[in-house]
């Protein structure tokens, strides 16, 4: 596939997805919007996992920080387009603070730091009831309006979310094609060689992680407005795990890996509903099997089968 047909396919794909909810009922529209929201978070996570080669198990915590910022500030009547950058910057800064000590050392300490961080953030959301509403969460979060047009209708809010997902993806795409972004791939593939070429591994990895966190913050803002109600349990460690698995299952380090992975984690619970309690057990062992047989994720399948023209 050359670059031109690739671009065309992408535009057609996005357009098709944009009109898809016209044929769906309320719950289907909600799932489409939810997919967009999670995609923003997993695209950011792919930066940390796929390009900077670090494990993060706390994406849901940043997602939650963004969502709580949105819930509290939007209810105070702050404009949506002010809340969005505030949440992004807040997550970026928290990401720097958390990543700095963890990334100075080897051994994938970031995985442990983010895991613990997620648990701590969950405890704060649940216990500091005066600010966060405690286990009951926050309800009645307003949806924004655009040029005087209310986005309260589900379909309109979906298009709004889709638009910003595409914008975010375009920014990340541009970032990864810039010289700054190319350094990511270099430090993932051979960190020591990258360092000897003058790339500051720690600084690059730290920024990749913080940008990934900021993406989750943005996703969180859209999530809060989508559901109009948030509670701590939506930001538990298990959601971080799902987001990480979305990136890995799709194919980490491939730009469209998270897209496929996010489709799977959003739709799989719906498809496998008939399995009831066994669904997650099957899912867990399927992940183990996938790693054993296809460690590069589902998008590496064409390469594994030796198809021509498949590229990253």
């Amino acid at each position: 596939m050359n670059a031109k047909t690739g671009k065309l396919a992408l535009v057609v794909g996005i357009a098709a997805f944009a009109i898809l909810p016209l044929f769906l009922k309320g719950y289907g529209v909600y799932l489409c919007a939810l997919f967009c929201v999670y995609l923003m978070a997993t695209l950011g996570l792919n930066l940390t996992v796929g390009y900077a080669g670090q494990m993060s198990l706390g994406q849901a915590a940043f997602f939650g920080i963004g969502a709580y910022h949105a819930a509290i500030l939007l209810k105070l009547g702050w404009p949506f387009f002010l809340v969005l950058p505030i949440a992004a910057v807040a997550c970026f800064l928290v990401g720097l603070l958390l990543g700095f000590p963890a990334l100075r050392v080897q051994h994938h300490y970031l995985a442990f730091a983010t895991l613990g961080f997620n648990i701590l953030v969950f405890l704060i959301m649940r216990n500091e009831a005066t600010i966060t509403g405690g286990p009951l969460g926050i309800s009645g979060i307003p949806r924004p309006s655009l040029f005087g047009i209310s986005l309260d209708a589900d379909l309109r809010y979906f298009w709004f979310t889709l638009f910003f997902t595409v914008v975010l993806a375009a920014i990340l795409w541009w970032l990864l094609r810039s010289p700054w972004g190319r350094a990511f791939a270099a430090l993932r593939d051979n960190p020591i060689r990258a360092e000897s070429l003058g790339i500051n591994i720690t600084a690059y990895t730290l920024f990749a992680f913080a940008i990934g966190a900021a993406c989750a913050g943005v996703a969180g803002v859209f999530y809060a407005s989508l559901l109009q109600f948030i509670e701590p349990s939506s930001f538990q460690f298990s959601y971080s795990l799902m987001m990480l698995l979305a990136v890995i299952v799709g194919g980490s380090g491939r730009f469209f890996g998270p897209v496929l992975g996010t489709v799977i984690i959003v739709l799989l619970p719906e498809w496998l509903r008939f399995m009831q309690n066994w669904y997650l057990a099957v899912f867990g062992f399927a992940i183990v099997a996938l790693m054993i047989f296809l460690p590069g994720g589902l998008l590496s399948l064409p390469e594994r089968l030796g198809w021509k023209g498949a590229s990253k």
Binding site: L241, L244, L245, I248, N277, W278, Y279, L280, A281, V282, F283, G284, F285, A286, I287, V288, L290, M291, I292
Partner: peptide, 12 residues
């Protein structure tokens, strides 16, 4: 990732 999957699988 495989051990994370194993963790989910065994628990569930």
């Amino acid at each position: 990732i495989a051990t994370l999957g194993l963790s989910i699988g065994l628990k569930q």
